[in-house]
Amino acid sequence: MFNNISYLRKELTIFKAINKWLKNFAYELQNMFFFSLRMLGAMFSRPFYFSETKEQLYLIGVGSLYLIVLTGIFAGQGFALAFSVELALFGAKDYLGRIMVLAIIRELGPVLTSLMIAARVAAGITAELGAMKSSNQIDAMVAFGIDPIKKLAVPRLISLIIMVPALTIICDIIALFGGYIISVFIAHVSSTMYWSSVREKLIFGNIFIGLLKPAVFSFVIAFIACYKGFTSAGGTKGVGRATTDSVVLTSITILMVNFFITRVVFALLKGYLL
């Protein structure tokens, strides 16, 4: 009998823990949603912080350029190398350009660029805002009549909206060029054949999906990174935890949203993608 009671108690504790976790999750999700709405609203109301936005454009855009160039060149080469071997088995090496466009423009370019920016920029944003919060700088801003969301979050959101698609385009071009190097020098596909194959698949649908994704991902990165920074608590340890959470949550969300965008766009724009 006593065994049964202790078993029931253990079960109850587990249910309580699950219940608490679910409640916290729902609460966090709700807070993040309202925070995102506040950020969106603040984007369209005065004052506008142009110099902060310019600074963030530089930090996010130019600062991430080397990372995106390296990502693009090695992702493009690696992908082309792997597929050229498989395609050669079927005598279809000439289609390498088409496959590169489908993989890079639709999927890898936007996802890899956003993941890289999530790792570099989201971590930076959360750590910076978290440090400002733990040293009361954000409260000091409020005390001096400044809305920290407008001053700190909106310039980062605008910069990400501009820079993530721009860096994705750069990543796509460099990855296609990486694919070109492998095609010509290792797979021995002629240069003309590779580029004409690439052009065949550079159609509206693919370019649209390739630009839609980074635009959506930029919101994901900005919302999560800023929210985690503004809500971090518990001193330096808390800032560290918030930064880790920010990168993990941003990366997972990007992959999830990527799947849903692909699914929706395929359902709605199938005719433009084939």
Binding site: S135, N136, Q137, D139, A140, V142, A143, F144, G145
Partner: peptide, 19 residues
């Protein structure tokens, strides 16, 4: 609240200067 805050000067713990 901003109008009220204009009449209040706050010195935070550790100063909270913008670093």
């Amino acid at each position: 609240k901003q109008n009220i805050r204009k009449k209040i000067g706050m010195v935070f713990q550790d100063g909270a200067l913008f670093d």
